[in-house]
Design a protein around this nucleic acid. Sequence first.
DNA 1: GTCCATGTAGACAAATCTGTCTACACTGGT
DNA 2: ACCAGTGTAGACAGATTTGTCTACATGGAC
Lengths: 191, 191
Amino acid sequence: MKQPASLESARPSAHDRILLTAHDLFYRHGIRATGIDLVIAESGVAKLTFYRHFPSKNALVLAVLEHRHQRWVTWFTDALARHRPRNGPPLEALVPALAEWFHDGNFRGCAFLNTVTEMGGALPGVMAACRLHKQDMTAVIAGLLPASRQRKRQALAIAIAVDGAIVHAQFEGDAKASLKALGDLLRPYLE
Amino acid sequence: MKQPASLESARPSAHDRILLTAHDLFYRHGIRATGIDLVIAESGVAKLTFYRHFPSKNALVLAVLEHRHQRWVTWFTDALARHRPRNGPPLEALVPALAEWFHDGNFRGCAFLNTVTEMGGALPGVMAACRLHKQDMTAVIAGLLPASRQRKRQALAIAIAVDGAIVHAQFEGDAKASLKALGDLLRPYLE
DNA sequence: GTCCATGTAGACAAATCTGTCTACACTGGT
DNA sequence: ACCAGTGTAGACAGATTTGTCTACATGGAC
């Protein structure tokens, strides 16, 4: 539907190339550190083409966050399903799933937390996008817990522990220590 | 020792005014968003004076982090002491102490986590400063726990929960929810 | 008195960043 | 055949940023 005419090349449309390139560069180097010109050059697109698709850098940032949210939640639910234990509480899948992410060479923390830090005050909408993202993450975590009156409350506590593990893994080289500590925090919720 | 000649004015030295002004501006608006010219104007100092004290903006950033670390740890230990319960585990002081910080109108998360996000890749030394800071924070937390073989391990898990609560309070307006969730995570460590 | 550290005011260079604009080319639908 | 949409290349303006430099003032040490 959005594929270009030529079938064998499968080169994404200019719009998508821009979005994916920006996603990578923003995540890797930060948003403020990434100039528009670099995004344009890296995605192999002309400047005018860029500004035809995105009226401004800020608009691109918000579009990237939207894309990121969809991509991340898809990965997260999928990873949880893949690591779901045969028997035992589904919550046990959480640490192995996050381990995938943390150990990826490109891991640089949570894109939403990073964006809030960089642009939270300057770009309206970033804060809201982050809240929505974390809300959805918490809902996915809640799905791992047995139904009970305190399920939402427990899910929020666990989500906060996860965020702590994310930022720790971000500035410490060692992701294993963060994951072990997260496992410790999760233990009381595992029965 | 570093006071100016006039005793009644008590105006800090140019060096200190720059440092304190930069500390506030960097924390409030972010580092990349704060130009050197603003720091200079706001601290009431001439440009040359600034560059006599700090060879570059990067050097200023590192100096601010050092200052921040000292200031924050001092506040933290003091707040924990002030909230120490008469009877009951000292760890109970943690949530009330953090509540002070979170509810302060100028709260904008952890300066070190923010700086890592903004400059972690670009400025060598930032990552190390953050690790040192969190290491010291963890050590202070360990001081609240009863001596045991697992004290260090427990302190790390608690520190991660605290970081999670910090970032959550940063993007959610509601600090109370973060603190309640942190209390939930801490409960198993409270006996 | 003289010197030197420390300070102020502000012009200036050089780089960088966002966003606009001109001129031109290809392609699919009608 | 023609036209609208989408694309490319790259110059350009305007703002902003870091860091240097000139010229001058003040106050304490010796």
